[in-house]
Design a protein around this nucleic acid. Structure first.
Lengths: 191, 191
DNA sequence: GATTAATGTTTAGATAGACTAACAAAGAAA
DNA sequence: TTTCTTTGTTAGTCTATCTAAACATTAATC
């Protein structure tokens, strides 16, 4: 199974930011310019993101995010803002510096730290741009069993295990693989 | 000019920690075990650190820190403790997690953030293990001209520039290169 | 001292990430 | 259209890390 590397998370986030302002598509060249890397590097990243099902892109065409990609990007973007605000709030750090350091820290903080930061800001009634701190639960990575999910919940598949081999096969036949984001649409009788 | 990479900083810090408890030397195998990497990787790192003048090591022999290496390692170790304490203090994060995350954050925070963290802890009268927060200035990276340094100060050479080409040549003849740590022993007449 | 175990070194190879340079396709301007 | 410019792609390199496996050396044990 492929994994979304930190570097590729940055590419994804950049695509998200560039498409935020109305435009549906970005061109690789814009990504390159904004990230200060070569077109070749962008090309490579796009290929990886495409394989992960996070972006859409055809030869010589522009790039756009899939639903999965949008969610993933929003999550990264949220972490970015969270860390940035936290740094500025606790340490009174200048925005540019907070920005730069958040860019890196966003990739390495775990769930617990994220939750603590959210609470820290909530308790002080500090708002986050673009995000409602009361609705960021979807970005937290919990490890739960499928049966613990409620209808409407979304989750990233980490492992497929089932008491019954047939169940596992059936799930895999649906094309569900590790790393996928799934959403619970409803409950079948007998779970 | 070579540079001390993040990975190699970790090796250096580990050597420091292993030699802290009395022992003067460490064996590569111990480093490998403690860092969960192969002996080959350790070997490579040692070579790099040796080239940078940070460790001493002879074929088939153990590893020890040079003065320069000790200083550098202590600086990294300080950043580690600082970040760890800051995380635990502000976010109430469990020690193991703070430990893990500090390990990574220590490499990417800049001078301003470090200073803010020091002040944050100082203002709350929080102590740092192994370090006196009132005496950590030597670990902060300032950019000063040689003439601004006082006797006893230590600094890392970032650039050698001199109004007089002869002066530059003389400094370089002393073997001073970028990245070196220098200490001001005294002032010659005429600066 | 000879044999075995533990350590250290080397080589070759993998992967991630970035770059340059040459080339191909699309778009814009003439 | 034809030509020029901008974009996108590919191939080949490079550096940093890491690894496994074979080999060399040193230390420990009998």
């Amino acid at each position: 199974m492929q994994k979304l590397s930190n570097a590729n998370q940055d590419y994804l986030e950049m695509i998200y930011m560039l498409t935020e302002g109305g435009e549906e598509y970005v061109r690789p060249t814009d990504i390159a310019r904004n990230m200060n890397v070569s077109k070749a590097s962008v090309n490579q990243a796009i290929r990886a993101l495409k394989e992960l099902g996070l972006v859409r892109n055809e030869r010589y065409g522009p790039v756009s995010l899939t639903e999965k990609g949008k969610f993933s990007a929003r999550r990264i973007h949220f972490l970015h803002h969270l860390v940035k605000s936290f740094l500025m709030e606790t340490l009174n750090i200048r925005e540019e510096i907070a920005e730069t350091e958040a860019c890196q820290i966003e990739h390495l903080i775990g769930n617990e730290t994220v939750k603590s930061m959210v609470n820290y800001l909530k308790n002080r009634n500090i708002e986050l741009e673009h995000f409602d701190l009361n609705q960021v639960d979807e970005f937290l990575v919990y490890s739960r069993r499928l049966s613990e999910l409620k209808v409407g919940d979304r989750a990233v598949v980490k492992r497929i295990e089932a008491a019954d081999g047939n169940v596992k096969r059936r799930i895999m036949e649906m094309g569900v693989i590790k790393g996928d984001i799934i959403e619970v649409k409803g409950m079948a009788p007998m779970g």
